[in-house]
Amino acid sequence: MLVGTADLDQLVQTAATIDAFPVEPLNLADVLCLQLTAEMHNQAREAVLPPSLHPTVPAILGLQVWQVGESPWGAFAMAVARVACRSGVRARGYTTAAFVSTAAATEGLRSMLGFPAVQGDVTIRHSYDGTRASVDWQGARILEVVGLDPEPLGAADVQYTGTLNLAHTPNGLRLVQVEAHHQVNRVERLTARLDTFDASAWGNPLLDPYRVVSCSVALEEVTFAPVRFVCKPDELAFTGTEAVA
């Protein structure tokens, strides 16, 4: 069974800190969520994941770009890169980097859910002929996605998996299990191109999304459930999972 081989000392450099786990759900309304999946070569399989996680075959990078109309921090946009993995038997995405458009949302997502978020310029534009998203950071374009030819799908046709964020927590350095419940109102599948992807900016130069598999864009409401479980990053989830009171 394959397991991650990344050096935790490297991964921890961008880790957020959660002083206290949230006990209330976090509701986001009027959300536009673009999700793109792309295959990577084997170089980005075990090497980008902590030792507690199992990679998928093939290695898959998931990119999500969100535009949020209403949240406790007001409107904001966010882009997240996640490597598809398994924690025990569960399908998850391990976050390698996240960029958020406002300081308040950046701090909120770091301190409540452990996203390794930094502030960046995130934009997403949805129109009848397609969707375009981009991220600029430190004066450079690090992501550019173009999705065209939208096809309507049913709300149940798109799958979102839970997220694992490496963060300092009251339990120590842990993978925080973040469950987002997507209430999808409308969803389209797009034919997408990944025109720009700066792997180093997204957390690891080994990330190479060379083959786009799919892209969808959904109008939805999203609720982040209170954190219930965390996992030790250097121990398999079968034994390394801890319940959060």
Binding site: A84, A91, L153, D157, V158, V213, S214
Partner: peptide, 22 residues
Amino acid sequence: NVANTHLYWTREAYPTRAYQTL
């Protein structure tokens, strides 16, 4: 069973009506 859950199911990669479960 663990090996089975580690397979990369179509629905996880590709939104479609043709695969409604993992």
